[in-house]
């Protein structure tokens, strides 16, 4: 994915007046069906990337749909200007309060690795406690101190984390993902009872220790194939331009 526009300061600032949704293509059947309606190639199949902008009702299109912002805007400044204009048409009813997270721990770890960001993840085997942890982490995620500086996972049961190379006990973690997002290093652990102030301090401290790897696409893919890394998608990859690779006999993640 070409993220060049999305990393520009003016686009990031304009994004604060939007709800920004970034899905992992081919990881949810319902989302695949939705995305295919938003944009598909000549074959009718969903391709690897999709981009659009929508009104708050998620029905009215505000920008031309395509595979990337470059299909709709000439440059980042043009994109940011349009975003400011679109946002001015709607009066916000409230601040954002939901936890910005992927659907599960395994996918969150992979996406954090893609973004070269630390992952904040809470673990509890108690459903009610997971609900409370999600609420606390949402407050942290939208705090001025940590806004957009880490990725978040929805609070998970310990067993869900065992689907990766990490098998975590209850608590709140800041994780430095490994290069392939299949495991990682624990940068910080906090008790589940920690309040939002303590969580903010703990996460900020871990951020100072975070050392993101430098990745280059060809080297990363070569290393991944040699090491038997194979990402299993939840739904079939349908992009006719996308590379195909058979699952190794040893199985994938």
């Amino acid at each position: 994915m070409d993220r060049s526009f999305l990393l520009q300061k003016e686009v990031i600032e304009a994004s604060r007046d939007f709800v920004c949704i970034r899905l992992a293509t081919y990881e949810d059947k319902e989302e695949v069906d939705y995305l295919t309606q938003v944009f598909h190639g000549p074959s009718g199949a969903l391709e690897n990337t999709v981009f659009t902008m929508l009104a708050p009702d998620a029905r009215k299109y505000l920008a031309r749909s395509g595979r990337a912002p470059q299909w709709a805007f000439s440059d980042a400044a043009d994109m940011a200007k349009s975003m400011r204009r679109f946002a001015a048409e709607y009066k916000p009813a409230d601040t954002q309060k939901a936890l910005p997270a992927m659907k599960d721990f395994r996918l969150s770890l992979d996406v954090a690795a893609c973004d070269n960001m630390p992952l904040v993840a809470a673990v509890s085997d108690d459903h009610d406690e997971r609900v409370k942890l999600n609420q606390k982490l949402a407050q942290v995620a939208w705090s001025r101190e940590l806004l957009g500086r880490t990725a978040y996972a929805r609070a998970a049961a310990a067993g869900d984390t065992a689907k990766t190379k990490l098998a975590l006990q209850p608590g709140v973690y800041v994780i430095e993902p490994d290069a392939f997002g299949t495991g990682g290093k624990i940068l910080a652990w906090m008790d589940s009872d920690a309040d939002t102030a303590a969580l903010t301090i703990g996460i900020a401290g871990a951020l100072a220790r975070f050392k993101p790897p430098v990745k280059e696409a060809r080297t990363h893919i070569t290393d991944g194939v040699r090491k038997g890394i194979y990402w299993k998608t939840a739904t079939p990859v349908t992009d006719p331009h996308g590379p195909r690779r058979e699952e190794p006999a040893s199985g994938g993640q």
Partner: peptide, 10 residues
């Protein structure tokens, strides 16, 4: 709030 929607394969 309006929506910025992106999807990509990780």
């Amino acid at each position: 709030r309006p929506i910025l929607l992106i999807s990509a394969a990780p």
